[in-house]
């Protein structure tokens, strides 16, 4: 600009003063930052990678040092994870081998046979994974739905003591899990909610609610009030306006909140460990307890962890269209 001013507008502009061209030094800096963040990402992803390949290794390959990058993949880990097995006699083994040759055995049964074992049924882990799906799924839906209504009320109506209430809701999030587990344990024992699906669903819903109310309120605040007002004068009731106008506008916020709530409920470990034992036990504590029994089946643990990641990855992937906007926490208006 300085050059431009000095010579005045009539002298020909020989040098570009456009700002959309980036200075070479800035370009190098940008590239450096990119490389650096890529490196950090790689380091962060290394354990996930190790877990991923370990899930497909045989018992021997897992333990080998230095770790093998190239190996023959096997589903042995998954077989160990998903089934209960029993050692079988020589006679029964031969019988099974014949069945295997006839192609009657499943993949897992054949893998078990190689170790001289027969599958007796699905393992407890299968039920626990199912428990995780039920508890995390229902509590996520509940906390997002309840949070959405609460957030809408806080955003649009005059609620007496609004700020105090909002702070109270936030404060429920401030206690670390460890502090409340003992009283919760005692309460749940008395109420008969210990080791019950309902108990865990209520707990996770309450825990996620504070988060979802705050997050969704931010998104709803961003939606201009006129949208609903237009619907109201156009002949819709408040509830219809909410479903037909507010909800579609808040889609990205709802998606982001859903993913965050799901990740919390799905990954939660401390409460699940304390408040469940058999019937309602979820997957995270059971993966950990697998380490205890006899020899450690590293490939089974890796397989369990890998399988455990998949539902969250699927949901996140399915909602990614909305997430990209949602993850900026409503900073950018769509």
């Amino acid at each position: 600009m300085a050059r431009f001013e000095k010579r005045g507008p009539r002298s020909p502009i020989t040098q570009s003063i456009r700002v959309d061209k980036v200075h070479p030094r800035a370009r190098v800096l940008r590239r450096l930052i990119a490389i650096l963040s890529l490196l950090v990402a790689l380091i962060m992803l290394l354990p996930v990678f190790v877990m991923g390949i370990s899930a497909f290794k045989t018992r021997a390959d897992v333990m080998s040092s230095p770790p093998k990058i190239l190996f023959r993949p096997t589903l042995e880990g998954f077989m160990l994870l998903f089934t209960d097995r029993a050692v079988v006699s020589q006679a029964r083994q031969e019988e099974l081998q014949q069945e295997a040759r006839a192609g009657k055995l499943t993949l897992f049964a054949r893998l078990a046979l190689e170790a001289g074992m027969e599958i007796t049924g699905p393992s407890a882990y299968v039920f626990r994974l199912w428990n995780s799906v039920i508890i995390a799924g229902i509590s996520t839906v509940a906390s997002v739905v309840l949070g959405l209504f609460a957030a809408y009320a806080f955003s649009r109506f005059k609620v007496p003591g609004k700020d105090d209430l909002l702070f109270f809701i936030l404060s429920t999030r401030m206690l670390p899990a460890v502090v409340v587990t003992i009283p919760l344990f005692l309460m749940y024992r008395q109420l008969g909610l210990h080791d019950k699906h309902l108990g865990m669903i209520i707990l996770y819903t309450v825990f996620n609610l504070s988060f979802s109310v705050w997050l969704l309120k931010g998104f709803i605040d961003e939606i201009p009030k006129e949208y609903e007002e237009a619907a109201l004068v156009d002949g819709y009731t408040r509830l219809q306006a909410f479903f037909r106008v507010v909800l579609p506008q808040a889609a990205s916020g709802v998606a982001a909140t859903t993913v965050f709530c799901l990740i919390f409920a799905w990954n939660e470990y401390a409460f699940a460990l304390m408040l469940t034992s058999q019937r309602a036990r979820t997957a995270p504590p059971s993966i950990a307890t697998m380490m205890g029994r006899g020899g450690i089946e590293w490939s089974a643990i890796a397989a369990g962890s890998l399988g455990f990641l998949i539902p969250v990855v699927i949901v996140t992937f399915a909602l990614r269209k909305y997430l990209l906007r949602g993850i900026t926490f409503g900073a950018i208006r769509g």
């Binding site: 237009a230 109201l232 004068v233 002949g235 009731t237």
Partner: peptide
Amino acid sequence: KHPSERDMAFVFQFYALYSH
């Protein structure tokens, strides 16, 4: 009466068109 029962149309300054 509720706005929906008044049979009046409202035009807003920022249009309030539904982007979805």
